[in-house]
Nucleic acid binder design. Structure first.
Length: 477
RNA sequence: GUCCCCAUCGUCUAGCCUGGCCAAGGACACCGGCCUUUCACGCCGGCAGCACCGGUUCAAAUCCGGUUGGGGACACCA
């Protein structure tokens, strides 16, 4: 196969959403797999809806995801002369014609057809007009064949046949001189030498029209691959009402690009029973043959789980700079370092997202521990004070505190009292973290350090005394 | 309405092309259990599906036809 050239052509009318990201991903993966070129093209011919912010937002998302492109971004709005040239070529060859029908009139006919349950289609009123032309603005229409059929050999769907009479004469240039989507796409794909068009299957109906345009313009046909769409939980097109759909929203929710990409690639594509892929494996194993044909439903639960798998295997040092902003956002002015590294290391196996990790790390940085009400009621009882004091004494006697020493200290306390370790561990856990569930206690104490551990144990003792002293605030049995 | 596409556990999917190895495998979620200083992880086990009808065949999740269901497209939007 010649050098593969693909493109991702978002229209900058909003943020990059999940569906678009997956289309971009499939193109990117296919291209990287074949060592080709991936082109970013901004389809901004609809001036009224396109914005520069959207262009930037899309670029930011692509960069965050790591879907780098080799050429572009090209803006269609900067290529107007090229489209004009192609329109004239078609006009002079009699493959396009001027249409003077008023948009309102067309809209009226269209609505009526839909109401009468008929297929809305241009009636060809201006198809055979010739000069002298009437005054007034005109659009340019493609003069399509009235009979025969156009066949799409789709790389994922197989052969799809369309009757040409179903295809009406689409407008290729608006009366304001701007090209329309179907035309601009073909001119761009043709001039940019695109070899593979991989896009959502909501485009299959556009494909025969585009094929006709490719032929009329004399460009070689690219290969087409229509991938199934992503649907929301109600089985309709994914949109805002299905919850977050912008890629950046997932960044803010603490997802890793690799985790999101992994989830997305498995929605509609598979490689045997394998679920977890690194970016490298995705590139190595991706192929269009293994893309499924049916639409998939976006499942946030599975995304979260897969993201967790990615968090788990990432080195702590790589995770540190990624969680840091989330911890800072909670109001803790901390810096990277050995301590944060250790925290991330014990947390990464239990956090599905960076947001969860930041939440779980919070107690390490709190000046004062707030005790979970239930936890305090159950474990911060008078008899714990004695345990805390013995621990404090033991801690004070340690020169250098190590995890192993902490463990034997705690086990020793339990043994002397002839109680199970858990009876000692839980009150201590609540005193140190505020909760009944936390990472391993020995590790927590090791990270907290001697001084901070002693301080928290003392504060917990004080808390117990004050709640016992408070009338009505006594712990009951 | 017309055209196009799709159809395996609740969800993502393997298997389908090249029928038998499938009393259908994996993952998420859910439910048990084990491990254990708690929670989580991990491990073990469970729940749950070939949309329906007919045909071809010794044999069909796999091939063919139809039905039903779902989705998408029908703009001087992309």
């Amino acid at each position: 196969m010649n050098q593969v050239r693909t493109r991702f052509p978002p229209s900058p009318t909003g943020f990059l959403h999940i569906g678009g990201a997956r289309t971009a991903l499939f193109n990117w993966l296919f291209t990287r797999h074949h060592g080709g070129k991936f082109i970013l093209r901004i389809e901004d011919t609809d001036v009224t809806r396109s914005t520069e912010e959207a262009v930037n937002a899309i670029i930011d998302s692509m960069q965050w995801l790591g879907l780098n492109w080799d050429e572009g971004p090209f803006l269609q709005s900067k290529r107007l002369a090229i489209y004009q040239e192609h329109v004239e070529k078609l006009l002079s060859r009699g493959k396009a014609y001027r249409c003077f029908c008023a948009p309102e009139e067309l809209e009226e006919k269209r609505k009526r057809a839909l109401q009468e349950k008929k297929k809305p289609k241009y009636d060809g009123k201006c198809r055979n007009l010739s000069s002298p032309y009437p005054d007034g603005p005109y659009a340019v229409r493609f003069k399509g064949p009235e009979e025969g059929r156009t066949v799409v050999e789709d790389l994922v769907k197989g052969r799809i046949v369309f009757e040409n009479e179903e295809l009406d004469d689409l407008i290729i240039q608006r009366s304001d001189g701007m090209p329309t989507y179907n035309f601009a796409v073909v001119v761009d794909d043709g001039t940019m030498g695109i070899t593979h068009v991989i896009r959502g299957d909501d485009h299959v109906n556009n494909t025969p029209r585009q094929i006709l345009l490719f032929r009329a313009l004399g460009y070689p046909l690219p290969h087409f691959a229509h991938v199934p769409m992503i649907l929301g939980s109600d089985r309709t097109r994914l949109s805002k009402r299905h919850g977050a759909e912008s890629v950046m929203a997932y960044k803010e929710m603490g997802y890793l690009p690799g985790g999101l990409l992994n989830y997305l690639v498995r929605l509609g594509w598979s490689f045997g029973d394998q679920e977890i892929f690194s970016i490298g494996e995705m590139i190595e194993k991706f192929s269009l043959e293994n893309v499924g044909k049916s639409a998939g439903i976006f499942n946030p639960e599975k995304l979260r789980s897969i993201n967790g798998d990615h968090v788990k295997v990432r080195e702590a040092s790589k995770l540190v700079p990624l969680v840091l902003p989330f911890i800072k956002a909670k109001g803790y002015d901390i810096v990277e370092g050995e301590k944060l590294n250790k925290i991330v290391d014990i947390l990464k196996g239990r956090s599905k997202t960076l947001v969860e990790m930041a939440d779980q790390a919070e107690f390490f940085f709190k000046e004062e521990i707030e005790y979970d009400e239930e936890a305090a009621k159950k474990f911060l009882r008078p008899e714990a004070i004695d345990v805390f004091e013995e621990l404090i004494e033991g801690l004070k006697g340690m020169e250098i505190m190590s995890e192993a020493e902490v463990e034997s200290l705690l086990r020793g306390v339990a043994e002397r009292r002839e109680i199970k370790l858990v009876k000692v561990a839980q009150p201590v856990r609540v005193a140190l973290t505020g909760f009944t569930a936390s990472p391993g206690l020995f590790e927590v104490i090791d990270i907290l350090g001697k001084a901070q551990t002693i301080k928290r144990l003392e504060e917990a003792s004080a808390f117990i005394r004050s709640s016992v002293a408070r009338p009505g605030g006594e712990n009951e049995d």
